[in-house]
């Protein structure tokens, strides 16, 4: 039964912005279904609508038209508070610029999302999440004392800590060198392959996209290509 219901089910979703006097049609009728345990890459040039799509999937924004069901729940009619609740419970964000709180330790950063839910054992759960990305030993370090790769791993731990339904990673390796990139992709792949976490990854780097099982390409607010990856690359093999 569980397999039957997709995690993400998007039907003919449109999004229109008012930019001054101009009406921008960022999404013009997108259809997308993501099943549980999938790992896909969203690609496309800037302005293609992929960021808008990510914001809608992440419940930071609601579609203007169409239908978006997240685990069967219709998101479109939700108000700010309900959306925040969905983000708290089901979505794990990983950002290109890490977006860690500079004044808080790695552990405190990972703990933070739990403060907004009914979090018990926050410290223990945060430590466990840090352990999953292999950073338990740096829990007390401040973000500035960590390398880029380490900071991004803290970011991933922060997304993982609340056991989300989907991990949304927006250019997670965009600010990293090749070696750290590979490290991060290895962590992300591990989460998908070993823990069965559903992952949506936005990238414009083809070789990063090749680490996933499916590539969805956007252009001008539409999905122009949606194809499985024949031979996904495995991160952490060479190094």
């Amino acid at each position: 039964m569980q397999q039957a219901m997709p995690v993400i089910s998007i039907h003919n979703v449109t999004k229109t912005y008012q930019m001054g006097r101009v009406l921008v049609k960022a999404l013009q009728g997108v259809n997308l279904t993501v099943d549980r345990g999938e790992m896909l890459a969203v690609m496309g040039p800037s302005g293609s609508g992929k960021s808008t799509m990510m914001n809608i999937i992440g419940c930071l924004d609601v579609p203007t038209g169409g239908r978006y069901l997240l685990e069967g729940e219709d998101v479109r009619e939700m108000n700010d508070n309900e959306l925040a609740g969905i983000r708290q419970g089901k979505i794990g964000f990983v950002f290109q610029t890490y977006n860690l709180l500079a004044r808080a330790s790695a552990l405190a950063n990972v703990e933070m999302p739990l403060m907004y839910g009914n979090g018990r054992n926050r410290r223990a759960r945060a430590l466990e999440a840090l352990d999953r990305v292999g950073l338990a030993h740096r829990a007390k370090h401040m973000p500035t004392e960590l390398s880029g790769g380490e900071q991004q791993r803290v970011g991933i731990a922060r997304a993982l800590v609340k056991e989300p339904s989907i991990l949304l990673a927006d250019e997670p390796t965009g600010n990293l060198d090749t070696r750290s990139s590979d490290e991060i992709m290895s962590v992300i792949q591990g989460l998908n392959r070993n823990d069965g976490l559903t992952i949506v990854l936005v990238t414009h780097e083809t070789d990063i996209a090749q680490h996933t099982n499916r590539i969805v390409s956007f252009r001008d607010g539409l999905v122009v290509d949606d194809a499985p990856v024949a031979q996904p690359l495995l991160a952490g093999q060479h190094a």
Binding site: N81, A84, G85, Q88, G89, F93, P113, R158
Partner: peptide, 11 residues
């Protein structure tokens, strides 16, 4: 913004 993305409500 970060806190809101992580699920912080308005209140």
């Amino acid at each position: 913004g970060i806190r809101k993305a992580m699920g912080a409500k308005r209140r």
